[in-house]
Design a protein around this nucleic acid. Sequence first.
RNA 1: GCCCCUGUGGCGGAAUUGGUAGACGCGGCAGACUCAAAAUCUGUUGCCUUCACGGGCGUGCUGGUUCGAGUCCGGCCAGGGGCACCA
Length: 866
Amino acid sequence: MSTERYNPQAVEPRWQAAWREARIFETENDDPRPRYYVLEMFPYPSGRIHIGHVRNYTMGDVVARYMRARGFNVLHPMGWDAFGLPAENAAMTNKVQARDWTYKNIATMRGQLQTMGLSLDWSREFATCDVDYYAQQQRLFLDLLDADLAYRRSSRVNWDPVDQTVLANEQVIDGRGWRSGAEVEQRELTQWFFRITRYSEDLLTALETLDRWPAKVRLMQANWIGRSEGMRVRFPLTKPTAAGTREIEVYTTRQDTLFGASFMALSPDHPLAAELAEGDAALAGFIAECRHAGTSEAAIESAEKRGHDTGLAVRHPFDDRTLPVYVANFVLMEYGAGAIFGCPAHDQRDFDFARRYDLPVTPVVLPDGVDAADFAITDKPYDGEGRMINSAFLDGMTITGAKDAVAERLETADPDSAPQGKRETNYRLRDWGISRQRYWGCPIPVVHCEACGVVPVPAADLPVELPDDVELDRPGNPLDHHPTWKHVACPKCDRPAIRETDTMDTFVDSSWYFARFTAPRSATPTEPQAANDWLPVDQYIGGIEHAILHLLYSRFFTRAMRLTGHLDLDEPFAGLFTQGMVVHETYRRADGAWVSPAEVQVTGEGTNRKAVETATGEQVEIGPIEKMSKSRRNTVDPTDIIAGYGADTARLFMLSDSPPDRDVIWTEEGVAGAHRFVQRVWRLVREWSDGREAAGPPVEAGDHPLRRTAHRTLAAVGDGFATLRFNVAVAKIYELVNAISAAQAEADGDPATAAVIDEAMLILVEIMAPITPHLAEECWQALGQEGLVATRDWPAADESLLADATLVLPVQVNGKKRGELTIDADASQVDVETAVTALDFVQRALDGRRPKKIVVVPKRIVNVVV
RNA sequence: GCCCCUGUGGCGGAAUUGGUAGACGCGGCAGACUCAAAAUCUGUUGCCUUCACGGGCGUGCUGGUUCGAGUCCGGCCAGGGGCACCA
């Protein structure tokens, strides 16, 4: 008798249709079961799904299917992050509309996702470029404006003079525009911002409540927010400037080192620097030079600490010294006070500056255990702990003590003058600039009127729709040079006015989509009840590359939506999982051209592995394993894999072996291995069901080790799914299959054993269903079961089978394993000690002496110390 | 420069969270079936030593805590990631 091979091409579409017809994945908001919201970061519709999507959505799908089996009303939606620059570029290159290109891609990718057999609620699907979606986003913008969380200000931006557009920092490569190649200028432009800094402290402290987030992501966000405690200190100038400036305010976190100060430095953008430059051509030149300096990483790293002496001086607050005032290229206007005092002995940057300009270096912190006479700062500043020296009333204090003492004194004003300083907490986090001079994004719904200023578009006039007929061939903002679009009547005074032509950063779109999924057709941005019921997302899954931007913006936006009454919670994602990338080795021809894996034949082992280009027979070099990318041509098309092996094989492979948060190396052998397992399970099930009659009529399941294995596997796999340790769950499933095969080989027609195998088979199929859902349905049917596995409740593991009646305990002598002890599971500590002492090898080791100690760890191990 | 993570067989990795290191898979080796191949099945597979029973070593290196360390602590080495003039 031969069993046909499992044919995924025929089987998978059939079950996908069955699920669709039964509408089992469409979720109702008023379902009485407890809720569970699983979400994977929605894709950008670039054209085709890639293998990273397959991994991401498979993980989410296993969680969704598992939680559904556990009795939850599961929300598992899908949508499209559909605005963005690639659509504009494609439109330009291919002479199509950005909209058409985007929706065509969405259709393609939806079809591809549907071949994966995902348990998605497609009835809630939307794209962020749907007018319905961005109309609601415009309402949110108006609410944020109202709440003073959105505002306009002038800001320095990267400006590409050829494309005539603002570029994000990520789009500036070595000081040049990534597309045009033109040298990027710093330009002062009026931009829209979201006031994320209002929540700096809250966004930081609330990280502690996110206990189901990776520690790494929380740490990255904490560093990004960058809280530091210090103080503002005012230094009086020895004489007022011509324009009447009398003092300089600085920010410092090291007020303890005040007695080590040897200079003051202003940012080139500091108002006082500008004031002085009016009468000082050399200074004006220096400032211009600073502004011109590159903003690329390399430029900053190699930039020397340089300054320009203004000739001014300030008085030290605690002694009668004066300090020279410089304008220095390394001081940022955006942070603190835009001015610092320099303490060269204890700060690398200040040290470099002092060496260059020959300023004094006075140590004021003495490391513990070092003699003051032996301590000198020679080639490196000291930034560690210690006690204060050379610091008058601070001498002998710790750094912390000195910080408090200085703050105390500076904050306490003389009766007839203002305090000289004030404690202040600063954050690295900046407000979020959302203006983009782009076409394919959500229009910012305001109008500029000469008489009335910035006027919000009235809610009744929303949405502000994007026009279809834009010219993308000209440089600059297509909305700005559209002939009619921007010309409107002022909503306030009805006189001719101009629409805002900037659109919103696409990160705004993805900052609230998870809330929209809870009521995707609502006429308001959310239905607060639905949002509050579903949110926070119980399990969010996506790439680590969004650790800061998307995840921080979403946390801010949730707070903003709470303030404006759209939902009532702070944290959008209760559980976060960051999955690793899919990587593949690279192949390169002698002429340097990359060759795709599909065009290569690899043979041999280890160092003898060779790759040959199939078409030419030419040997190609096997390069390092890298993230799949178009430029390296080391991508694998999921469509080919699914067409060749089936979705279940692709899904199984993605979850096998590699822990889900680590990178997985895509190999042909690995995929083939997963496919072999799919075939093996099918063969096992088919042969069993075909031969089942021979095993006799069903009887009570016998007491067979397979029963224990099956129930333990059931418990372990459920646990693996719940904790997203899919690779371990898969290994346990393999073990169960091995155990069933072995039991089957020995069963030999025994009806009691056959009944145990029957039970184990059903458990196997049910625990595999979340991973390989099509195979599971097919097996379920082959085993003569009714209905769909997809709608089955997760089977309950029999607790009594999870523990053994008899244990085999490892026995150590002096911490080294020397043998085993077989004993009843409920044996007492004394029983175990007695039994262990009687063992041959223990007797030999004791050699007549009494053991010094016997350590018995219940149900685990025994250690005899002699 | 600062901060963080990781290091286990030929490879991906597991280890009940301080308790039998190497589960499971890939690869290898040996065998069965076959005219042959594919597919499938069985056995074996950390290193050294021994005819064998057995013994020794072994989780990057090094020291420590402990009856017991892959797991905890100190120092070092290597690889990866984040931030980057943030005062």
